[in-house]
Simulated scan of single mutants.
Amino acid sequence: MDAAAFLGLVPTEDPKRFRLPVTTGICTGGRFLFGGAGLAAGVVALEQASGRPMVWATAQYLSFARPPAVLDIDVNLAVEGNQITQGRVVMSDNGQEIITVNAALGARPIDIEGQWAEMPNVPAPDECRGREFRNDPSATISSRIEERVAMGRSPRQMDGTPGDGRAALWARMPELLEMSPAALAVLGDFVPFGVSQSTGRMAGGNSLDNTIRVANLVPTEWVLLDIRIHAIAKGFAHGLVHLWAEDGTLLATASQSVKIRMWR
């Protein structure tokens, strides 16, 4: 299964228009579209419309989309250069904008490359415990993502003691056969997990935005989500996620600002 099938993205006769049925399998426990799935749908639409791989994409979340809505996805390739395409997507529900995505796509032949970020030293996936959820994750996107805690506390350990701003999860999506920018867009939406880990309190949040920057795609079953909360102020959290392959390759980086929510 590729990312388009995982999301349920439906092409139309217009190569720059797609539809996304909002189903529980791409929704959160709050029964609205998971932000990472929305960004991923925009990425697939842009890649298919342009014929180029995504380099960078950012989503702004304007409103919620809930089942059984069907989102219209309209692609605008604003600039199509020799090597780079700049494009945008508007995702709407009956004319109401839900998500906007801006992106750059392409590849450039150049003999300069390197990786300077370092993967944290954490236990392997088979040595880590499964993530505990405060609510039943069945019939949500969480039921389609296997998560294991490499660095972090369980909900029962949230006693108000602040952490150091770091957390890490191993994650895999068994339905997907290959790593792709869209798959990384889904997995990049995990800054909210770091909110409770950083504060020591039962808290999370709703994404205001999500940006994904792709470095190198390599085959990997598990992806390490290296989550870093930089600051929490005025009711918002700001942080990033480094996404690592099992062999230490930096696949991508993701960043978000999150509206804090306290859980009961």
Rank of each mutant, 00 (worst) to 15 (best):
V79F: 14
G42M: 11
Y61L: 15
T24N: 08
A69D: 13
S63H: 10
A57R: 05
N76K: 14
T28F: 05
L33M: 07
A57E: 11
E47V: 00
G35D: 06
A49P: 01
L39Y: 10
R52V: 04
L62Y: 06
I73D: 01
S50E: 09
L77D: 03
A69N: 05
W56C: 01
Q60P: 01
V55Q: 15
M54V: 04
A41D: 02
Y61A: 09
Q83W: 14
T24W: 15
F32C: 12
L33Q: 01
I26F: 12
W56A: 02
A49T: 00
V75S: 11
N82F: 06
V79M: 15
R52M: 11
G29Y: 04
A40H: 04
V90G: 06
V43F: 07
V90D: 15
Y61Q: 07
I84C: 10
Q83C: 04
F34H: 15
I73F: 05
R31G: 00
Q60F: 14
V44A: 09
L71E: 08
L33D: 03
P67S: 07
I73A: 01
F32R: 01
Q48Y: 05
S50Q: 08
A40Q: 05
I26V: 04
G29K: 07
N82Y: 03
R52H: 05
R52N: 05
A40I: 05
A41F: 08
Q86W: 14
N76A: 15
G36P: 01
G81P: 04
V90K: 11
A40R: 04
F32A: 05
A57T: 05
A45S: 14
L39S: 02
P67G: 05
M54A: 11
L77I: 04
F64T: 06
A59F: 07
T58D: 06
R52G: 07
T58L: 10
P53Y: 08
G29V: 06
P68S: 10
V70R: 12
